[in-house]
Amino acid sequence: MPDYAHRLARVQERMAATGADLLFLPRSANLHYLTGIPREEPNFGNTMYPGEWLSGAWITPQGAPILTIPRMLAAFHLEIAGYDVRVLPDAGDPAALAAEVLAALGVPAAATVALDDRAWAETLLGIQALRPAARLVSAAPIMRPLRLIKDADELATMRQAGAITEAAFADVLPKLRHGMTTLDLISEVNYQLKRHGSAAPSFVTSFYNMGPTHPFDFHNRDETLLLPLDAPVAISFDFGAVYDGYCYDFGRSVFFGEPGAEYRRVHALIMASQAAGIAALRAGNSCAQADAAARTVIAEAGYGEAFRHRLGHGIGMDVHEPPFLTASDHTALRTGMCFTVEPSITLPGQLSCRVEDVVVVGESAGEPLTRGFQELYVVE
């Protein structure tokens, strides 16, 4: 169970250190991290409550924060230790409630107000209207360092998210058959994720197809969803579970039909590249060094131009978090950071292969949180 009081104390310490008079966090990964109030599975369109622009936590460097949330959400979270919970009015002026909150917290006229990077523009404009002399800054310098290093409880949660993801994949594999469609694959993966305990997919479940009659296709376009996957074709899975607020990101390639010698060689290279990247995820190295270690394996085999993207990204309560395993990111690696390691080789019109696991940075090497399915799976 996360120690939310300790997290709040650390946030308030960082606020004092950065000179922030007020921190506002909307319903988000940061609010989830700080209070345990979960995010909802995203909708395609917005669902809004009256005055939702001020829904979230209002925190000062000392004292109890104020939490302003809609009535339906408050019904489940009226008791948040250390917070003064106030319900958004179904009728009335939301700006009046915001003014009351700012006054109750003693926020000065020329305050430095830190806003979550994903706060709405409506929130910014509302605060500006109430405190026109305020200086508005990003909350990232306060929140990002606290979420960067995962503690033992967080790593245990992420391991469970990985276990759910691998269990779902294990139950998908026997369902693979020639002639099925990408829609069939999406439906099966999402069903198995939910069946094994995932709150939702951590991002849109995606497949990358490549074969002589299957031009490389990113994601799942409507026009290709119902095309039969006829051999020979390689299918790269990209999906992940959500468990107790933490995300997973996982990838494996399978082959429908008999893979040729080059595809088997490419698959072996991908696995070797990932192993090199995992070995380089040790404290003291940089993100760029880890990227280079994995990329060198592929480049020396003559496929350098076919590895088209960064090696990976940070991951935790968000499926993509900074820093990034890429040549331009020289952030020093620290024990407890978590990254995806996801090399790929893509030759349009010929073949595509990728692998992906979440890895925690260690003192001497990275530790993958998932280790299964290392051999190429062939659907005969």
Rank of each mutant, 00 (worst) to 15 (best):
D3H: 14
R7L: 05
R7H: 03
E13V: 13
E13P: 04
T18C: 13
G19Y: 11
D21H: 09
R27T: 12
R27V: 13
L31V: 08
R39T: 14
R39L: 15
G45I: 08
G45H: 07
N46I: 07
W53T: 13
S55W: 00
G56D: 14
A57Y: 03
P65I: 09
T68V: 14
L73K: 09
E79P: 02
L88H: 11
P94F: 01
V101G: 03
L102A: 09
A121C: 10
T123E: 08
I127L: 15
P141H: 07
P141K: 14
R147D: 12
D151P: 06
E154R: 04
A168K: 01
A170E: 15
R177K: 10
G179S: 01
L183N: 10
L183M: 10
L185W: 12
R195K: 14
G197I: 02
S198Y: 03
A200G: 03
V204S: 11
P212H: 12
D217H: 12
F218K: 10
N220M: 10
E223V: 13
L227H: 07
A231N: 06
D238G: 05
G245K: 00
Y246N: 08
C247V: 01
F256P: 13
P259Q: 05
A261D: 12
Y263I: 07
H267V: 05
A268D: 15
A275Y: 07
A276W: 02
A280V: 00
S286T: 08
A290V: 02
D291L: 03
A301M: 04
E305R: 06
V319Q: 07
H320L: 13
T326P: 04
A327H: 14
H330C: 04
C338V: 14
V341Y: 02
P348I: 02
V355P: 07
E363P: 02
E367V: 11
L376V: 04
